[in-house]
Structure formats: C-alpha cells, structure tokens
C-alpha cells in the first residue's frame, strides 16, 4: 500500500480560514506541490497581497513579506533583485492585481523580473464583501454592481493572461481553472511550469487561475464550479498564451 496523495510539505498542517469550496485552498495546494517538486521550500520567499489570501504566511511554510494592496510585484522585484538566488513568488487576487496593482504587474512583467506570479481570478473582491472587480463578468451582479456589470459604464472584464503575453519581458503566461478534476490536473502541470521558469532562470512567469468565490457569488460550491465552467471559461479561455522557452 502506497500513499499516492498527501498534503505537500510546503503547506503547514493547519486548517485554513477559507470558506467551504473556496478555490484559494486548491491554488495554495498546487503552488505548494510545485515547491515540493523542485525542492525549493527553504529558499522561497512568498509575497502576500491584500485579499482573502493575505494570510499566506499562515499556510505556506516559507518566509513571507506582506505587500500593500496591489504592490506585490514591486515588493517581489525589490526582494528578488536583493536576493537573486532565492525563489520569489507573489499570490494576488483580481482586485489586487488587475485594478489597484495594474501598473506594478505590467512593469514587473515588462522588465522580465525573475519572479512567479500566481493570479487568482474569482471575478470579485472576495475579502471586502463581493464588490465588482475588473474581471467581473458582464451582467454579473455584485454588491457594487447591483444591476449587473454594464460594459458601457464599467468596461469589459480584463483578460490578464492574454494582456501580459503581449509583453516581451514575459517568459510564461497561462490560464488554468480548478473547477473540475481534469482542469485541476492541467493546473497542476502548468503551476509547475510557472515555477520551473524561475528555477531555470527563464524569466517572468504568470499563471492565472480561474477560481470560485461561492460565498460572494451566493452559490453552493458545486453550483459555483459549474458556473465557472459554463460562464467564465468561454470568456476567459484556458490555455498557454506565452511560453518562450517551450517548457
């Protein structure tokens, strides 16, 4: 009898504060598995953003710096330039990365910083109570778009993986989802590729993960995952948008 699935070592053995069915737990686990795979736990520096994932240090067994809202790529830039032999990753939500932190992510990517960015897109501001995010779907009702997102006033949801793939500084950009076993397996593979880029010093890597926020979507976890597959994936297609080193 062989244990074929267990908690990765880079995750602490503690219960998270995430709501039932929240994708943050899955994304944490996939990132920790990638760290285990490359044996980099002891040399990794995580940069936490402000959002439901702010307690990164409570769950990952790695050193962590907490960044102001949206600034994680700048904080990671400073850390990586000062300690180029360490593995530095940021973990950011869609409000954090695609609204307040747009300048920081674009320019860190454009400079080709040797960091890995994990972007959790749940189409809402989870932590602050489900307000509209730059990734909120057209028509989606949130606490600040009670009539549904109106593309004429609020614009269209931003596709970050495609946008960043346009930049020469980017080595790897991909979008994955964690709503089904099949998608989780693909996410697992590409999460490893994202870290491999940094381990092999191949440049900036970005992985967008389509995620659910059952609490603020007002859905059961099962319904939320179904919704992700039916509504989000058609607008935010999964795939690898840039892979300069063909890893």
């Amino acid at each position: 009898m062989k244990q074929v699935f267990q908690k990765p070592e880079s995750l602490k053995d503690v219960q998270t504060h995430f709501c039932p069915g929240c994708s943050h737990g899955s994304v944490h686990r996939l990132a920790a598995e990638a760290m285990d795979e490359f044996g980099i736990r002891a040399e990794t520096i995580g940069v936490a953003s402000v959002g439901c994932s702010v307690f990164l240090y409570s769950y990952f067994d790695v050193d962590v710096i907490e960044a102001p809202h949206g600034r994680a790529p700048a904080v990671a830039t400073g850390a990586k330039r000062a300690r180029p032999d360490r593995i530095v990753f940021t973990y950011q939500g869609d409000g954090d990365l695609a609204a307040i932190g747009t300048a920081e992510i674009i320019h860190a990517a454009n400079r080709g910083e040797d960091i890995t960015v994990i972007f959790v897109n749940n189409t809402t501001y989870g932590m602050t109570g489900g307000q509209m995010a730059p990734t909120t779907m057209v028509g989606q009702k949130t606490s600040t778009s009670p009539y549904g997102r109106d593309q004429n006033k609020d614009g269209y949801p931003i596709r970050m993986a495609e946008l960043l793939a346009q930049l020469e500084g980017v080595g790897f950009s991909a979008r994955v989802a964690v709503n089904s076993p099949k998608n989780v397996m693909q996410a697992k593979k590409l999460m490893k590729t994202a870290f491999q880029y940094q381990v092999e010093k191949k440049g900036f890597s970005f992985i967008e993960v389509l995620a659910v926020c059952p609490t603020n979507w007002g859905m059961s976890p099962l319904a939320a995952n179904e919704h992700l597959g039916n509504e989000m994936i058609p607008y935010f297609p999964l795939g690898v948008y840039r892979n300069t080193s063909n890893l």
Binding site: M1, K2, Q3, V4, F5, Q6, K7, L11, Q15, T16, F18, G21, C22, S23, H24, G25, S26, R29, V178, S180, P181, V184, M185, K188
Partner: peptide, 21 residues
Amino acid sequence: TGCALCAEMCPDVAIAVFKDK
C-alpha cells in the same frame, strides 16, 4: 482505484489516498 481525483478536487487537502501495489 486510488485515482486520487477526489483528493485533487478537495480545496482543504482533507483527503489522503492509498493505492494498492
């Protein structure tokens, strides 16, 4: 079958999987 798909889906890493052989 020990395929571990259940565990892969669990956001809370609550499932350990053991496989024959």
